[in-house]
Design a protein around this nucleic acid. Structure first.
Length: 204
DNA sequence: GACCGGATTGGC
DNA sequence: CCAATCCGGTCC
């Protein structure tokens, strides 16, 4: 099978546009344990310096956020609640620390590997495998070692899917950012309507 | 150097 | 509903 990462230019655009267009694309990780992949079904845009929900709000620069300040098309990974990794793709040109959080995928390749990594033996509901940012990182084997990885190389990347996903892309408020003032109401979350791997919400 | 809380998850 | 678990950010 051929691997063809999306070109750098895909990421060097408006972050909301990138977040919307990532829906339906295939996220691939080629690790020593084998290849795993899934179709992206839920994302959120984080708009950098002016976005109170962004880790780079106010222009904050730190060891954690520095990768977002580089030219887009890299991986930003952070640890949440001391337990789970979350994966973002960085966007925009150098100096604009914006990113898209991958919130859910639908498994495509390497189901056995993903089940093992998640510690699920006889999963009653397969959707529990990758229906959340922490869960999909665990299933895909995405950890701190991939912080800063270049999405234009062939280790961890996004490409066009072999089988296009059907369905309409919906938009809603982002999840769990109640602290973000008026930005909590901005509809910067995107998801594939009707897909069972999308986080269930009370509002859509 | 202390303290606070989180772009989550799973169990009670 | 709430604990887990630890790192980053803030303030002293």
């Amino acid at each position: 099978m051929a691997f063809k990462p999306l070109p750098r230019e895909f990421y060097l655009r408006d972050t909301i546009q990138v977040a919307r267009e990532l829906i339906g694309k295939e996220l691939v990780h080629r690790s020593s344990a084998g290849i795993t992949s899934g179709v992206i079904v839920e994302t959120e845009a984080y708009m950098g310096i002016t976005d109170p929900a962004s880790h780079a709000f106010g222009g904050l620069r730190s060891k954690r956020t520095e990768i977002m300040y580089l030219t887009g098309g890299r991986v930003y990974i952070y640890l949440i609640y001391g337990m789970y990794n979350c994966m973002n793709v960085t966007t925009q040109k150098e100096g604009a620390p914006e990113a898209v959080l991958i919130r859910a995928i639908q498994p495509v390749r390497g189901m056995e590997i993903m089940l093992a990594r998640r510690g699920l033996k006889n999963p009653k509901s397969l959707m529990n495998l990758t229906n959340g940012p922490g869960k999909l990182c665990q299933a895909m084997g995405i950890g701190a070692d991939l912080y800063g990885a270049d999405l234009c190389e062939k280790r961890l990347f996004v490409q066009e899917p072999e089988n296009p996903a059907a369905g309409e892309v919906g938009a809603s408020r982002r999840l769990n950012i109640e602290y973000a003032g008026s930005a909590r109401d901005f509809e910067w979350r995107f998801y594939l309507k009707g897909n069972p791997f999308v986080t269930r919400t009370s509002f859509e």
